[in-house]
Design a protein around this nucleic acid. Structure first.
Length: 804
RNA sequence: GGGCGAGUAGCUCAGCUGGUUGAGAGCGCUUGUCUUACAAACAAGAGGCCGCUGGUUCGACUCCAGCCUCGCCCACCA
């Protein structure tokens, strides 16, 4: 054994060994209470990023802890087909050959996606393994697997028959590149410098008019009204009259609507229901027509007259030029505002009116809301629980259709007479007219529609399988804040609707790991840190430790220091194991404490055991990890190992057996966070045939409780000696431990006795002042007052010992 | 505009329901020590108006109010 622990090789060895020996496997017929995490399926095209790594570090610590506690654990892996994201990746690939998906056609494109996935997809599980994540990899599921597709179809048909899925023509977000609708949650917003044009719409008689402000002059062609706020005095007389739309020169009404902000621009809004969500609402309230002049490709369409085929920028300029020539362009001012982009291709989103499939949320969300309000499902931290409830309460109907070529094709068949037939698999004939000339709906489902089934579709649903019976409902899900509305809430209502039970009881909303400089980690900014690099440099154990430590706040900067701390811990553990394993030839591992420091360390370990259990149960990983670090460094290495070393060298059999027993317990406590190094050391313990990963978590052991503070006097004496050079009188074990630890004969003392006396006098004065304060003694809790008395007594003793 | 969170040592952060940590940890810095587990270690030390201003209290880093700065999420300001 070398003095420096090197994780490379060791970690890979255990990762493959554990998996090959089947320790990750979950079996429905295995005994024990279940502990189930259906891990968030990464995109099938994805690469490991820091968010994944953090999720794995937290979830795997819990899984390993529960596994050691004897739970029948299922840690479920798999992939999401990630509709638009995957399609986008393959289209980029095609673009390198100068082709588009349309050159291939739908069927060939789909084949191309599968081929692409065969070559480049599904790499991330290798990276999950490198984190040491103990997922049951045999159970890998993909949302496009045949069985999974069947589940998605069942879900759709079920909701349709309940009357909750319907078709409607509404304004939606349209990506002109992907030519699909997108949900609000699939957009990103960026600030952009633009221009705000003030354009006058004259009254028909030519006397005056109404001036509006617009950032999108091209859509003037589709204006159907001008709207003002009902309380806006400036436009009292205009309401009810008509104005003439520039360029197209037709008359439209001036209407009053509360949605108009009188503070913005001129307080008058041009109403374009076909190309703006707000205008769409105003239009529907006033029964206005909904013409569209921008096509699905983002350019001016056939309704744009002589501007058809132009880009919106070109058309806008032509229209403004027209207005300028006629004195109807009041001014153009620079304008900075945020615009919506497709999160995948960053094309500017076009609001368009389109026929889409919707899922009504009204009834579906009710049981889920009840589950959240009654706290049968709990989000952590608490603030996110309130947010989850609010989001679900306000969840609008869900646009579930996408005009993509990669995804679950909607199970609806149309006949030439316009009837629709909804079945899980292709029907023989139209359910209404019996026509056999059926055409399948071309739209696919929103990716999250299938993700919502993850906790039970991975267990074999819609079949009634042993896995489903045994492992549903599960326990826990870990995710990022922005996923609450996209996924978490939808899993809850789907589970309640289809299985009749919640999918899990707890949701951990973990921190967002930022770049070290505080910016968001992103590939395009170049601020991303690859977890695999971190693992390569510091080891998976250290990375897991660091991530646990970074998990405490909502946003945290990535800290190499935290990872480094984990590496130090692994190294320290490695070295203290060398000491204990080489200094003694003990072959027994049994706690037979004789001396005070042995009972003390066993008590400290049990105390830490309790804290780790408590903090894991509360998902407070940062505190768990801090407890483990302090236990290992301060208690185990700096005090216990130093104190016991001489007795080990004397080949004291009891001390050796006890030391190994203490080490064994320490390894068990550390295993959930540092699985590899602990397993490696574990194999060197005598007579050890089982694996640490499937050994047991230490049972409560309160036998030495009374000794938990036994070293306090020695520790105080050491501090006094090092600060003042004065040896406090100690006897027996205490004296032996002091000498083993401090080695007063070799140590150079800093500080001096007089400075120490001065410090103590000040402390005594402070404590006496407090205890002399009647109101403090009367009002403070008795234990606080008592604590202050004890402190005073101790200072006096110490001062006395220093001859003060 | 709404919601959430953060401002404590040079840096990254603990400090949970007010007094029980003599304001702490890791990294960095200074000074010692090659002590037969570890110099990637051990020991000591320097370094803090605990964002600002008020309030409650015998007592506030901790509770309350207001303000300032920063981050994230959400939102239809044309």
């Amino acid at each position: 054994m070398e003095p420096l622990y090197r994780p490379e090789g060791v970690e890979e060895h255990w990762q493959t060994t554990w998996e090959q020996e089947g320790h990750y496997e979950a079996h429905a017929d295995a005994p024990g209470e279940t502990f189930v995490i259906a891990h968030p399926p990464p995109n099938v095209t994805g690469e490991l990023h820091m968010g994944h790594a953090l999720q794995l570090a937290l979830a795997d610590a819990l899984v390993r802890w529960r596994r050691m506690q004897g739970y029948n654990t299922l840690f479920q892996p798999g992939y999401d087909h990630a509709g638009i994201s995957t399609q986008n990746a393959v289209e980029k690939d095609l673009a390198r050959e100068g082709k588009t998906r349309k050159d291939l056609g739908r069927e060939a494109f789909e084949a191309r996606v599968w081929e692409w996935l065969r070559l480049y997809g599904r790499t991330i599980m290798t990276q999950f393994r490198r984190m040491g994540a103990s997922l049951d990899y045999r159970r890998e599921r993909f949302t496009m697997d045949d069985d999974y597709v069947r589940a998605v179809m069942r879900f759709f048909v079920h909701l349709y028959r309940k009357g909750w899925i319907y078709r409607a023509n509404r304004i939606i977000n349209w990506c002109p590149f992907h030519e699909t609708s997108l949900s609000d949650l699939e957009l990103i917003h960026v600030e952009r410098d633009d221009q705000l044009a003030y354009v006058t719409y004259p009254f028909p008689d030519g006397e005056g008019g109404v001036t509006i402000a617009t950032a999108r002059p091209a859509t003037i062609l589709a204006d159907v009204a001008v709207a003002v706020h009902p309380g806006d005095k400036r436009y009292q007389d205009a309401v009810g009259r008509e104005v003439v739309v520039p360029y197209v020169e037709h008359r439209v009404p001036v209407v009053a609507d509360d949605a108009v902000d009188p503070e913005f621009g001129t307080g008058a809004l041009k109403v374009t229901p076909g190309h703006d969500p707000l205008d769409f609402e105003i239009g529907r309230r006033h029964g206005l027509p909904e013409p569209m002049v921008v096509g699905p490709d983002g350019r001016m369409n056939e309704h744009a007259g002589d501007l058809a085929g132009l880009t919106q920028e070109e058309a806008g300029e032509r229209i403004l030029e027209w207005a300028r020539e006629r004195g109807q362009l009041e001014k153009v001012e620079p304008y900075r505002h945020s615009i919506a982009l497709c999160e995948r291709c960053e094309s500017r989103i076009e609001p368009l009116i389109s026929d889409q499939w919707w899922c009504a949320m009204g009834e579906l969300k009710k049981p889920a809301l009840e589950a959240l309000r009654s706290r049968r499902v709990r989000y952590h931290p608490e603030s996110q629980h309130r947010f989850a409830i609010d989001s679900l309460e306000n969840a609008p109907d869900w646009n579930i259709s996408r005009q993509l070529w990669w995804g679950h094709q909607i199970p609806v068949w149309h006949c030439p007479d316009g009837h629709i037939t909804v079945e899980e698999t292709e029907p023989e004939a139209c359910a209404e007219c019996g026509s056999t000339d059926l055409r399948r709906e071309e739209d696919v489902l929103d990716t999250w529609f299938s993700s919502a089934l993850w906790p039970f579709a991975t267990l074999g649903w819609p079949d009634d399988t042993p896995d489903l019976r045994r492992f549903y409902p599960g326990d826990l899900n870990t995710t990022a804040r922005e996923i609450i509305r996209l996924w978490e809430n939808r899993m809850i209502f789907s589970g309640l609707e289809m299985i009749g039970d919640i999918p899990f009881t707890d949701v951990i909303i973990h921190s967002t790991v930022l770049a070290p400089d505080g910016r968001r980690m992103s590939k395009s900014l170049g601020t991303g840190i690859d977890p695999l690099d971190v693992i390569g440099d510091h080891g998976a154990d250290a990375t897991r430790y660091g991530l646990c430590k970074m998990s405490s706040t909502q946003d945290v900067r990535f800290s190499y220091g935290a990872v480094e701390e984990g590496r130090k811990l692994a190294n320290k553990l490695w070295n203290v194991s060398r000491l204990l394993l080489t200094a003694t030839d003990a072959t027994e591992v049994e706690a037979r404490p004789q001396a005070i420091e042995e009972r003390w360390i066993l008590a400290r370990i049990d105390r830490a055991r309790a804290t780790v259990e408590e903090t894991f149960a509360q998902f407070d990983f940062a505190r768990a990890v801090q407890t483990l670090y302090r236990l290992t460094f301060d208690d185990f290495c700096d005090w216990y190992a130093e104190a016991i070393k001489p007795r080990l060298y004397e080949q004291d059999a009891d001390a050796g057996a006890t030391a190994l027993a203490a080490l064994e317990r320490l390894l068990r406590l550390l295993h959930p966070v540092l699985p590899h190094v602990t397993e490696e050391i574990w194999t060197n313990l005598p007579a050890r045939e089982d694996r640490l990963i499937v050994s047991s978590w230490p049972a409560e052991d309160r036998r030495f409780d009374a000794d938990a503070d036994a070293l306090e006097r020695v520790q105080d004496a050491a501090a006094i000696f090092l600060r003042s050079g004065v040896l406090v009188e100690l006897a027996g074990d205490e004296r032996r431990i002091f000498e083993a630890k401090v080695r007063p004969e070799r140590v150079q003392v800093n500080g001096n006795a007089e400075a120490e006396r001065e410090r103590l006098r000040n402390e005594i004065a402070r404590a006496e002042g407090m205890l002399g304060n009647e109101r403090f003694v009367r009002n403070a809790p008795p234990d606080v007052v008592e604590g202050e008395r004890e402190k005073l007594a101790r200072y006096r003793r110490e001062l006395d010992a220093l001859g003060g």
